[in-house]
């Protein structure tokens, strides 16, 4: 059990990193990474929502959809759960933890359309994970996202001062730097634990 969890965690953070190897969550990854602290805020919000969404969607899938033979409604149910979860988390944080809300607030609505969140719940179903494995995969997948976006933001802060061709302004130069980071993460691919 423990080895399983460790291998899921390392897999999600390093070997099959959500951004650099599975391309899940690229839009916020490129959109919210111009500064290290915004990137960290976004990453934290994603870890939070991915962990919660994994837990709730697992329960809904295993105890409601599958027993009723409604597995084909998974995509619809999951996206509704994620959207309402994000709304709920936003309201909860605003009332109970205003300091965390002011740190995460503006990123929360963006998370609904982050495909890493829907991706992780769908992958949980596809990989037949149990409850604990699902939650661990959700949280560590989020941590992998956070690692990627923070690393990338620190690269981007330097890229701003670089002298690149005019037509690379904006996204293209980011994608080229992301490509080089992906190359670095490739070093982890196929790493075997135990």
């Amino acid at each position: 059990m423990l080895t399983n969890i460790i291998s899921i965690s390392l897999g999600a953070i390093l070997i099959n990193n959500f951004i650099f190897s599975q391309f899940l969550g690229c839009c916020p990854f490129l959109g919210c990474s111009s500064k290290v602290d915004t990137a960290a805020g976004m990453g934290l919000a994603v870890v939070f929502v991915m962990g919660l969404a994994s837990a709730i969607c697992w329960v809904i899938d295993v105890y409601i959809l599958v027993p009723l033979g409604l597995a084909f409604l998974e995509t619809l149910a999951f996206i509704l759960v994620i959207a309402s979860l994000v709304q709920f988390v936003e309201m909860f944080l605003k009332k109970m933890v205003p300091s965390l809300y002011s740190a995460l607030g503006i990123y929360l609505p963006l998370i609904t359309t982050n495909c890493a969140v829907l991706g992780v719940v769908l992958l949980n179903v596809q990989n037949n994970y149990n409850f604990i494995e699902s939650v661990v995969y959700g949280i560590t997948g989020g941590l992998g996202f956070m690692l990627a976006i923070v690393l990338f933001a620190s690269v981007r802060e330097r890229v701003d001062f670089a002298d690149y061709p005019e037509c690379f302004e904006g996204f293209p130069i980011c994608l080229v730097s992301a490509a080089l980071l992906a190359l670095a993460f490739m070093g982890f691919s196929g790493m075997k634990i135990f």
Binding site: E166, C167, P172, V176, M186
Partner: peptide, 25 residues
């Protein structure tokens, strides 16, 4: 073979967008 890996995805899209920006400009 590297073009088949994630690296190839990022760099090809980056170059395509750059080409598009160049042409539009």
């Amino acid at each position: 073979g590297i073009m088949n890996l994630p690296f190839g995805g990022f760099i090809t899209l980056g170059l395509l967008i750059a080409a598009m920006q160049y042409a539009l400009k």
